[in-house]
Amino acid sequence: MNRFDYLSPRNLAEALQMLSVRPEAIPLAGGTDILVQMKERSRHIEALLSLKRVPELHQYSLNGTLTLGSALTVGQIAAKQEIQRDYTALAIGSGLIGSVQIRNMATLGGNLCNAAPSADTAPPLLVLGAEVVIASHQGERVVPLETFFLEPGRTILQPTELVKEIVLSKSHTRTGSFYIRHTPRAGMDIAVVGVAAAITLNTNEIILNARLALGAAAPVPMRAVQAEALLPGHRLTDELLREVGKTASQEAEPIDDLRASAEYRRHLVNILTQRALRGAMAKAKSNQGYQE
């Protein structure tokens, strides 16, 4: 690793102040991506801004809405019972990243800011309607996660900005979500394709609302809006599932790379979309009668 300056702010105001003076500083959260980039790909870094001791970024609150500080580890998120129950897709995605060791280090904000097309928290957060709270020394702005990613490895964040927290709206009755990915190995692997689904049912098990999101199926994690649009007003029949899966696979914009061909990725989007919807459906049926 190259030599770099190490900045260690003690609160958010100090962190944002430091970043305004040293905009070339790269925020350091869990370090599981950035240290690998510095070691393996010789990424040159002038300064790291450590987020470890910024208490505002470690906050967790479930008070109607769910607010997740960007420096919470994915291990902490995967272990929360209320996230497993009400924001299932996020608990699944967070729990699939790396190993126990990596999940104890890697953070939610880091997974998003690294902007890998295959980030396992991104499709779940997209179907859960996540908003990103971005802070700089000049103030805060809130953007939907859908507008956050620009291209592989790049987000809308300006050099003086940090992701402060992720906000998810209240989970409703008869709502369920699910995330499923394909990897050649059972663990310690990167998604070839990942699909998240969220469904809200009415009392007659007719779909009121549905969202689908795809990972590693386009340059950035994406909603499959055309496929989603086929669902409201219907029951989830096998025929509808096939139709939605096919539409999602047509909407995807996958590439050929060393992990899979574009053609295989389209096939995976089709199949995994159907499985994610079945998973979300099962969750929605079981989420009766609490909250609201």
């Binding site: 190490y6 260690s8 350091l28 869990g30 370090g31 599981t32 240290l35 690998v36 790291l48 450590s50 470890k52 291990g75 126990v100 060791q101 990596i102 104890n104 280090m105």
Partner: peptide
């Protein structure tokens, strides 16, 4: 008390 990879953690942290 939690397992981490010491190779990916800066000592200052």
């Amino acid at each position: 008390g939690e397992p981490v990879c010491a190779c990916l953690m800066l000592a200052v942290e």
